[in-house]
Design a binder for these strands. Structure first.
Length: 277
DNA sequence: GCCCTAACCTGATTGC
DNA sequence: TGCAATCAGGTTAGGG
């Protein structure tokens, strides 16, 4: 379940492995993966070269040297791998990009949730409108305290839902949402606009720090996530909340609870996470 | 416009 | 043991 640190790990792996590689041919095995015109997708990519591998939120942008960019979203279990040309397909390979250097790029996706689009470079929002609506990246320079304070003051829904909303902050998913709420001692069902400013200040700091540390650890491995080298991330060993149902809270020792908030499994400490409402 | 829910999928786990 | 139900979660379409 890739969130920002996982997608960033995939991005840097792809950058090292395929940036500068020229494309010989493309095979689309699962056509529903491609959300724009299939024929155009194949025709424009053939014979192009991967020029730059970028990321925005959880979207990967594979920029070609011919004015087009492949926009790729891994959703839950999408995954890239680079293989020798004679390697057999994997069970869930949906797309094969054959390279001139006798390697090929696989896109694999067990649950078939991932999506790809072909867009004009620097105008990706035309075919993927949600790209243009994304909130700031969770970094020191992009995620300003003033923005959070003003924005959150208008939001009447549960804080967990707010953190998962990519239009508010780009890149957080279920795991890191639970983590930063635990760190900030905020109950996941707190009403966003009721959270005091000093608590938001702490929340902002924790979000930024969490993303830095998780990215340094190449993300969290839960279920099937692995990076482009097939390696697992290491961050799951440092989780404080996610997946710790019934285990003692690392702060107060009370057993952690698991509930559903906006359809998402949510693990938290009832004892030391405060509910603002 | 805000907020919530269902749908998209398959594999692993849980329950009977 | 075997089979069915449930759960996992990112995003969006659609309903109230």
């Amino acid at each position: 379940m890739p969130e920002l640190p996982e997608v960033e790990t995939v991005r840097s792996g792809l950058e090292r492995l395929i940036q500068g590689a020229k494309i010989k041919d493309v095979e689309v095995i699962y056509p529903k993966l491609i959300k724009t015109d299939l024929e155009e997708f194949v025709e424009k990519i053939k014979l192009a070269t991967f020029a730059k591998i970028k990321r925005r939120g959880k979207y990967l942008l594979l920029e070609l040297d011919n004015g087009y960019t492949i926009v790729s979203h891994l959703r839950m279990e999408g995954q890239y791998s680079v293989e020798a040309e004679n390697t057999p397909l994997r069970k869930h390979t949906e797309l094969v990009v054959h390279l001139f250097d006798n390697r090929k790029l696989y896109y694999n996706d067990t649950r078939k949730f991932g999506t790809m689009y072909l867009a004009k470079t620097n105008n990706e929002g035309e075919v993927v409108p949600s790209l243009d609506k994304l909130g700031p990246e969770p970094t020191e320079s992009d995620l300003k305290l003033d923005y959070i304070v003003e924005k959150f003051a208008k939001i009447n829904k549960k804080i967990k839902a707010t953190l998962l909303d990519q239009n508010v902050i780009a890149g957080l998913g279920n795991i890191y949402a639970d983590e930063v709420l635990w760190q900030s001692k905020i109950h996941p069902e707190s009403i966003t606009k009721k959270i005091p400013k000093n608590v938001l200040e702490d929340l902002r700091k924790n979000i930024i720090q969490e993303i830095i540390v998780a990215t340094q650890n190449h993300g969290t491995t839960v279920h099937s996530y692995s990076n482009v080298y097939g390696e697992a991330g290491e961050f799951q060993n440092q989780l404080d909340a996610y997946g710790r149902k019934d285990e003692p809270c690392k702060r107060c020792g009370q057993p952690m609870k698991k509930i559903k908030v906006v359809q998402r499994g949510t693990t938290f400490c009832e004892h030391c996470q405060i509910k603002y409402e």
